[in-house]
Simulated scan of single mutants.
Amino acid sequence: MSTRIRNRHLAAFGVAWVGLFFVLPLVFLVPESLALGTGQPFQAYNRVFDSLYIDAFVRSFLYAAATTVLTLLLAYVLSYYLSFGSRRIRLALTLVVVPLWIAYIVRYFGLLLFFSPAGPLATYTGLEVDLLFTTPAVIIGLMNVYLPFAVLPIYNSLNSIDTELLDASRILGAGRWRTIASIVVPLSLPGVVAAGLIVFILAAGSFLGPAVLGGPGQKMVANYIAQAFLDNYNIQFASALAVVYTIILLGLLGIFNAVADLEEVLGGI
């Protein structure tokens, strides 16, 4: 099998899979959003740029940015502990990975119950936090769901650092924080960038987070797309929202790539 199946065959299979089930459906959205046979090809796009939906786009990417920053901070601390401070690495990694086996809807409803006035937080501590159906609740929910996606690439980068470099830094007189700033952080940057991209993309397109933990003022683009398609069965408008969202997301990723040079940074993973 190893002589018959080569790397180019695996790469071709991956490209074909992505093209068939990701790129092709997105391409089909464009003519669907234009509604070419109706005589009003840009009617759906005119509606997309209504202030209600512009606010949803801005809200989606702001929530994603806030979730990414906070998740990376928490994930870096946890990954550093797993790499350099934990003696039971397998157990700790298992605790990080296990949440991925639980459906998103279950985890979001778990937070909904936890923060509810009759939930365990209020029952056992007496604290009644007014978080439900607010922006902080949505961001906390997104962080909770996407944290494992940030921990794993950062842990991989930290775990690949040669410990002799850390020992040399200490021998030369650098303290713990100087070593972290000068050695650990720069060498773990590829994992941080990869984690940030994953969390940002997933958070920006989240549907369940604002649907379960947010209110009408926390709706994101995915919620309006689902509402347009599932509730109103307005396929043209839902497609237009999806196309504009995809263009904005790709544009942001292109800007980030121009600044950070993703190929060079991620090549270190």
Score class of each variant (00 low, 15 high):
residue 66 A to I: 15
residue 227 Q to R: 01
residue 39 G to Q: 02
residue 153 P to S: 07
residue 53 Y to W: 08
residue 20 L to T: 12
residue 140 I to H: 09
residue 223 N to W: 06
residue 237 F to I: 11
residue 219 K to W: 13
residue 203 A to P: 14
residue 1 M to V: 15
residue 24 L to F: 14
residue 115 F to W: 12
residue 258 A to G: 15
residue 32 E to P: 02
residue 170 R to M: 05
residue 150 A to Q: 14
residue 63 Y to I: 03
residue 211 A to G: 04
residue 48 V to W: 01
residue 21 F to I: 07
residue 146 Y to R: 00
residue 82 L to T: 15
residue 37 G to C: 11
residue 63 Y to N: 00
residue 85 G to N: 10
residue 28 F to K: 10
residue 20 L to F: 12
residue 222 A to P: 08
residue 195 A to K: 12
residue 184 V to S: 04
residue 28 F to C: 11
residue 139 I to F: 04
residue 1 M to Q: 09
residue 171 I to C: 08
residue 202 L to K: 02
residue 232 N to P: 08
residue 79 S to W: 00
residue 116 S to Q: 12
residue 25 P to Y: 05
residue 15 V to F: 11
residue 248 I to P: 03
residue 211 A to C: 02
residue 119 G to D: 03
residue 111 L to S: 03
residue 128 E to T: 13
residue 228 A to V: 02
residue 220 M to P: 10
residue 16 A to E: 03
residue 64 A to S: 10
residue 67 T to H: 06
residue 265 V to W: 04
residue 231 D to R: 06
residue 8 R to Y: 15
residue 150 A to W: 11
residue 236 Q to N: 11
residue 14 G to R: 06
residue 79 S to T: 07
residue 114 F to E: 00
residue 209 G to V: 01
residue 2 S to C: 03
residue 239 S to H: 02
residue 54 I to S: 00
residue 142 L to Y: 06
residue 234 N to P: 14
residue 143 M to E: 10
residue 70 L to M: 09
residue 16 A to H: 02
residue 89 I to H: 06
residue 245 Y to T: 04
residue 143 M to C: 05
residue 134 T to Q: 10
residue 193 V to C: 04
residue 165 L to H: 04
residue 15 V to I: 15
residue 89 I to Q: 09
residue 185 V to K: 05
residue 137 A to F: 12
residue 138 V to M: 02
residue 18 V to K: 00
residue 118 A to H: 07
residue 67 T to W: 06
residue 181 A to F: 09
residue 255 I to D: 15
residue 181 A to M: 05
residue 213 L to E: 11
residue 263 E to Y: 07
residue 19 G to V: 09
residue 57 F to K: 00
residue 71 T to N: 03
residue 120 P to S: 04
residue 30 V to K: 07
residue 99 P to Q: 08
residue 51 S to C: 00
residue 196 G to R: 05
residue 51 S to G: 03
residue 220 M to N: 10
residue 13 F to T: 12
residue 152 L to I: 15
residue 214 G to T: 10
residue 133 F to D: 06
residue 26 L to G: 00
residue 130 D to Q: 10
residue 87 R to Y: 09
residue 206 S to L: 04
residue 247 I to M: 08
residue 2 S to L: 13
residue 172 L to F: 04
residue 194 A to S: 13
residue 241 L to M: 05
residue 94 T to N: 08
residue 237 F to W: 02
residue 107 R to T: 13
